[in-house]
């Protein structure tokens, strides 16, 4: 490598006014919130909710999550614009603005990517006590056939695959997928070496 990488450091406990200001009620701009797409985007509207849990199963109230995802056709947004109107593909939320430390993303269900990867969301996890951010993916419980053919899921030991599959619940407001992130323990979420 021509240049040595700058080391990672924790996001710390006080990121909210800098990175997720509007969500926490601070008067400062932020580049993204929990709204990945609006009602004008093509696709099935879904919601993803969950908690980040520490090694004792306690919900973490100072974590931040980012989502990056493809649209309903499996295409990632292009920096030069165009494509699916109303679809941003990117979200960022903290877990501290909700009394139960629950995060929530409103989006559309992504399509299969490259014709061989099952629909999924890319997730980055940050928090105090995390010196390096963690990468995971969210797959969907109602995509059993696509999940069975997904090369990334196939690379995960079978006993751990369940940690990265969000469970669908049907509500009057539409499908809600539950995805808890376990930092440690028997249900420790699979994190990728990215």
């Amino acid at each position: 490598m021509a240049e040595k990488q700058t080391p990672s450091q924790t996001v710390g406990p006080f990121f909210a006014y800098g990175l997720t200001a509007r969500q926490y009620g601070y008067r400062h701009p932020q580049v993204a919130d929990g709204q990945i797409s609006d009602a004008t985007a093509d696709g099935t509207a879904i919601t993803v909710v969950g908690q980040v849990l520490d090694g004792q199963g306690v919900a973490v109230g100072d974590a931040m999550l980012e989502i990056w995802q493809a649209d309903a056709a499996g295409q990632y947004p292009n920096p030069s614009g165009g494509g699916n109107t109303g679809f941003r593909g990117f979200a960022r939320v903290g877990t501290g603005a909700d009394a139960s430390q629950t995060f929530r993303f409103d989006t559309i269900k992504p399509g299969a990517v490259d014709g061989r990867q099952a629909p999924h969301l890319n997730v980055i996890v940050f928090m105090r006590g995390l010196l390096n951010h963690c990468h995971t993916r969210i797959w969907f419980s109602d995509e059993a056939a696509a999940n069975a053919a997904d090369p990334v899921l196939a690379s995960i030991p079978e006993a751990r695959r369940g940690t990265v599959i969000a469970q669908r619940q049907d509500t009057p407001q539409g499908p809600v997928y539950r995805f808890d992130i376990h930092m440690q323990g028997d249900q420790e979420t699979v994190f990728f070496d990215i």
């Binding site: 090694g55 973490v60 928090m127 006590g129 995390l130 010196l131 440690q184 994190f191």
Partner: peptide, 14 residues
């Protein structure tokens, strides 16, 4: 970090 850092090896992407 004791209760928040992952304990299992990171999995490489194929």
């Amino acid at each position: 970090t004791a209760l928040r850092g992952p304990t299992r090896p990171l999995i490489p992407l194929p």
